[in-house]
Simulated assay, not measured.
Amino acid sequence: MFTGLIQALGNIKPLDGDSWEITCINKSADVILQDIAYGDSIAVDGICLTVDRILDDGFIATASPETVRRTILGRESSHQRIVNLEASLRVGSKIGGHFVMGHVDGIGQLLTSTKTATSWEMTFTAPDAIARYIVPKGSIAINGVSLTVAEYYPETRQFKTAVIPITYTDTNLQYLSSGSWVNLEGDILGKYVEKFVTGNSPHQIAENGDTMGINPAFLAENGYL
């Protein structure tokens, strides 16, 4: 589990087979490298990858075919690029962003990035699999960065975020241009709420043995509406 607060930047390049070499490149790399161990989980552009081998200035990880297919690894695997890095959350650590699982739901695309007096306003597209979890003032992870949705446009499945300077300059969001692909992960809380509300989870068993989902009728009967 991660928080979406990026700790370092790195270069990623594909190796033979399904392996990837990640090299830390900035001064904060010690946060990643100081206690890295074989088998650790590291979020690489929001993708939870497992450390297979430790290098002097980075590590090597393996990505499954499913991970490559679902993320931008499958679209930008032929060249080296800069990625966001975050070590997994430790017990007792501060949670400054939101709960990020490192399980990318799909790929979006940057439409526009406009600098304002106080931030960069960035507008992205989102596939249906993620768009249903996007709500104004809700959380979303873009390349592993925890961001707040400023506006959502359901007709076009587009959303806007306001990225503050420290987040912009400390992450690879600064290197994106119109048309760039990004990894997107919806808020885990929204996914569970959807599952319960739509009745897709047998969380409750009726007296006759039937499963019951949380729906408006159930909430009204129990005093919530």
Rank of each mutant, 00 (worst) to 15 (best):
Gln158Arg: 14
Thr211Cys: 07
Pro136Lys: 15
Asn11Tyr: 14
Glu207Cys: 01
Gly74Met: 08
Phe2Ala: 08
Ile164Asp: 07
Gly17Cys: 10
Asn222Trp: 05
Val135Ala: 09
Leu189Gln: 12
Asn172Cys: 11
Trp181Gly: 04
Ser201Cys: 15
Pro154Asn: 13
Ala206Phe: 07
Asn208Ala: 04
Glu185Pro: 03
Met122Tyr: 02
Gly144Val: 01
Ser180Cys: 07
Asn84Thr: 13
Ser180Met: 09
Trp181Arg: 08
Met1Thr: 12
Ala150Gln: 10
Pro165Gly: 01
Phe218Met: 04
Trp181Val: 05
Asp170Arg: 15
Pro65Leu: 13
Glu76Cys: 11
Gly102Asp: 03
Thr125Ile: 02
Asp35Glu: 13
Gly102Met: 05
Ala217Leu: 15
Glu207Pro: 00
Val197Lys: 07
Val68Thr: 13
Val197Glu: 14
Ser119Tyr: 05
Ser146Leu: 03
Asp18His: 14
Gly186Arg: 02
Arg70Pro: 06
Ile95Asn: 05
Ile22Thr: 06
Lys27Tyr: 08
Asp210Ser: 09
Gly10Val: 02
Thr116Ser: 11
Thr23Trp: 10
Asn200Ser: 14
Arg132Ala: 12
Asn143Glu: 00
Ile6Cys: 06
Phe196Ile: 10
Pro216Gln: 06
Leu55Gly: 00
Arg70Trp: 05
Tyr133Ile: 04
Glu155Val: 13
Asn208Val: 04
Thr198Trp: 08
Thr50Ala: 12
Ala63Gln: 04
Ser180Arg: 09
Ala206His: 12
Gln158Phe: 08
Ser93Arg: 06
Ile188Cys: 12
Pro154Met: 14
Thr112Met: 03
Trp120Gln: 09
Leu225Thr: 02
Ala43Thr: 00
Thr23Asn: 13
Thr116Tyr: 05
Ser28Lys: 10
Asp57Met: 00
Thr67Asp: 08
Ser180Val: 09
Phe196Tyr: 14
Val135Ser: 07
Ile60Leu: 09
Val163Ser: 03
Val149Trp: 08
Ser88Cys: 06
Cys48Tyr: 05
Gly96Ala: 11
Asp52Asn: 02
Pro216Val: 04
Leu49Pro: 02
Ile205Gly: 10
Thr114Ile: 15
Glu76Pro: 02
Thr112His: 08
Phe159Gln: 01
Val91Leu: 09
Asp35Tyr: 06
Phe159Val: 01
Thr169Leu: 15
Thr116Cys: 07
Gly97Arg: 06
Thr167Asp: 11
Ala217Lys: 12
Asn200Ala: 15
Lys195His: 12
Ala220Val: 05
Arg69Pro: 00
Asp16Thr: 13
Pro127Ile: 11
Lys27Pro: 04
Ala217Gln: 13
Ile107Trp: 01
Gly46Arg: 06
Thr116Leu: 11
Lys115Gly: 07
Thr114His: 11
Val51Ile: 14
Asp40Cys: 00
Val44His: 03
Ala126Thr: 09
Lys27Phe: 07
Gly10Ser: 05
Asn183Thr: 02
Thr116Phe: 04
Pro136Leu: 13
Leu225His: 02
Thr50Gln: 12
Leu73Arg: 07
Ser119Phe: 04
Thr71Ile: 06
Pro154Asp: 14
Thr169Asn: 15
Gly106Val: 11
Ile6Leu: 03
Leu219Lys: 01
Ser119Ala: 10
Ser88Thr: 01
